[in-house]
Simulated scan of single mutants.
Amino acid sequence: MSGNPFEPTPSTDGAETVALSPLPGIHARAESDTLTQEQIKRTYAWYAPIYDQLFGAVYAHGRRRMAAALRTLAPQRVLEVGVGTGLTLNCYPATSSIVGIDLSEPMLARARRRATRLGLTDVDLRIMDGESTPFPDASFDCVTVPYVLSATPEPARLVRELRRVCRPGGNIVILNHFSGSRFWWLLERAAQPLSSKVGFRSDFHFEEHVARHDWKILSVESANPFGLSRLVVIENV
C-alpha cells in the first residue's frame, strides 16, 4: 500500500432549448448518501440540457490541467469514464484514440454532437456502466475519470475496474472534488443530505478513495476555484 498522504499545492453545444421540470426529489430529504444507477440516470437526464451552463465554466480550469497532464503522458489508447456531454473531448492529444462511456443517454447524445462539431474522428462513445465494462484486461494506456469518482454508486468497485482495464504501467487520471477545503466545508455539509438527489457525494475523502490503494501516485494538484477539485495522476501497478 502506498500510504501517500498527498495534499494539493497551494456552452453551449448547439442543442435545442428544453423546458425543465424541477430536479426530481430535490426538496426531499435523503436518508443517506447512497447512489443508485437509476438515480444517476434520472438526475443526469435532467441535467443534460443545462449541464454545460451549470458546470462548464466552473470546472474549466480542471479540464485545462487534465489536458496538460495528458499532453505529457501522450497515451495512445484512452478510456474516459463518465464522458457526459463531451466537455473533455478536446483535452486529448490528437494522436490518442478515445473511448468514452457514460450511463446517461441524454448526456451522451450531446457528447456525440460535440464530437461531430469538433471534427473528432477517432472517438467511440458508448452507453456503459463504468463499474462493470466488457473490455479485456489491460485494454487502455490511460483511463481518465473526470468528476465521476464521487458520482458512482460504488467508488471502490469503479477503482477495481479502472485498474483492470488499464495496462500495468499505464496511467489513471482522476479529476474530482475531495473534502477538506475550508472554503467549501459549509457547502459540503449542506449538500450532503441531498447527494442521492443531486447525483454526487459532497462529503468525499481523498485518503479513503485514492491514497489507501496500492497504486503509485505520481502527482496531486489543486484545480478549479478555491481548491474545489484535485487532479491526481497515478501509475497503475
Rank of each mutant, 00 (worst) to 15 (best):
N4F: 00
P5G: 09
G14M: 05
G14T: 10
G14C: 08
E16P: 15
A19I: 05
A19W: 01
L23E: 13
I26F: 12
A28M: 04
R29M: 13
E31P: 09
L35T: 03
T36C: 01
Q37A: 06
Q39S: 12
T43Y: 02
T43P: 06
A48T: 09
P49S: 02
I50Y: 06
I50W: 05
G56L: 04
A57L: 09
Y59L: 09
H61T: 14
R65Y: 05
L70C: 10
R71F: 14
A74F: 03
Q76R: 12
R77M: 14
T88V: 10
L89H: 11
N90T: 14
Y92F: 11
A94I: 05
V99Y: 15
V99W: 04
G100D: 13
I101L: 07
D102R: 08
D102I: 03
L103R: 07
S104R: 12
S104F: 03
E105T: 08
A109P: 13
R110W: 08
R117E: 10
G119F: 02
D122A: 06
G130I: 02
E131F: 01
S132D: 06
T133C: 04
T133W: 00
V143Y: 01
T144V: 05
V145S: 09
Y147S: 15
L149K: 11
P155A: 00
L158R: 08
V159D: 15
V159C: 15
E161D: 07
E161Y: 01
R164A: 01
G180I: 00
G180Q: 01
F183N: 11
F183L: 08
W185F: 08
L186I: 13
E188K: 01
R189W: 02
A191N: 15
S196T: 04
K197M: 05
S202W: 09
E207Q: 06
R212W: 06
D214E: 14
W215R: 11
L218F: 10
S219D: 06
E221C: 07
S222Y: 11
A223D: 10
A223Q: 06
R230K: 12
V232Y: 07
I234P: 10
E235T: 09
E235H: 02
E235R: 15
N236Q: 08
V237R: 15
V237M: 08
